[in-house]
Design a protein around this nucleic acid. Structure first.
Lengths: 179, 179
DNA sequence: TGAGCATACCTCGGTGTCGATATATATTGA
DNA sequence: TCAATATATATCGACACCGAGGTATGCTCA
């Protein structure tokens, strides 16, 4: 979900909601727009869970800003979610948010390269791709031309993500590792 | 949504819920699994709207089947939805269901080729791809390397769909047009 | 002076999806 | 004979998301 992307953004540095809103829109508004009625409740949930704290910043703008800070627990939660296989599942329609969290969380190359590699392995694993979730697939179902069409599209998408991940990892390894 | 896929399936011929469930799972369970708690309420909605009728088929299986028939209004609704530009939006996360409806609705080549061509035009239109939804994009935002990554992935996905659509249309035109 | 817009936050109702659960019969295999 | 499994349908609560609407201030331009 969106929560993951927010945690990813805040791992860079604190932001107020409106700035967050703008950054999400700028980065992926053309692919995956986010409504205010989605963003602000998401922030509220994260605050209720203790993953972000909010502090009012008086008199810097037209309307009072509530600056969002990622807590220690919030950082742990982000790292946990990025490690979770569920969030790497290609069937996850909110894959975009997962990717966005990845993208905003590249400050620590060593740890991140490992996470990216795990996602890459998941995508490369052929069985994960043909897994039905319930039962083995019959031969005739497997050969269905309609199914083939969907498969081609899904594979192309995964392939694009994979290529991007490979390039990203390569760049991380070129850069000097921190710590 | 799922409704579109169901209407698409039923446009082929009547099915009972469990058969529908199996076909959806076989076709795209590995990409987009559908829960029972999603499917049956969706059928109920379609029935309430008058787009499908249900008739109990006694004693053919372990449990009694409720066979689903697409009504005339249901067929009109399907065609209306496939023509709607909203359902062609690349930001639509339920694009899979749209594609599935397309796939199951290829019985009438002439009409369908037109629909597919419209979707193709939408994907090829460069402005639709860079549209922010709210405001023009600043140059620096445009060049953001993170944004580039997301864009590459989104473009690859659209490109895969596009290629598939081209092939599908080509096959439709090879086949003799009905009527 | 006033309109309009950007900034900034938020609520509310409706909806679609999920996971868990319920029910009940027929078939298959140990 | 007993336990699974497959068949078949359905409800329920929880939850994330959306669109519409609300509130209020400050800036700019006519």
């Amino acid at each position: 979900m969106l929560e993951l992307a927010i945690l990813g953004f805040l791992s860079d540095h604190p932001l107020h909601g409106y700035e967050l809103r703008k950054r999400v829109a700028a980065l992926m508004g053309h692919v995956r727009p986010v409504a205010d009625g989605t963003l602000y409740p998401a922030i509220k949930r994260l605050a209720a869970a203790g993953w972000v704290t909010r502090k009012d910043e008086p008199g810097v703008a037209a309307a009072p800003r509530r600056v969002l800070y990622l807590t220690g627990e919030g950082r742990e939660e982000l790292e946990r979610r990025l490690r979770e296989p569920a969030d790497l599942d290609i069937s996850d329609e909110n894959r975009w948010f997962t990717l966005l969290a990845f993208l905003r969380h590249l400050d620590e190359p060593d740890a991140q390269a490992a996470v990216l590699r795990r996602r890459l392995a998941f995508l490369e694993e052929p069985t994960s791709f043909f897994y039905d979730g319930e039962r083995p697939m019959a031969a005739e179902e497997f050969a269905d031309p309609f199914r083939q069409g969907l498969l081609v599209i899904a594979q192309a998408t995964s392939h694009a993500e994979l290529t991007w991940l490979r390039n990203t990892i390569a760049e991380l390894e070129k850069a000097p590792a921190a710590g």
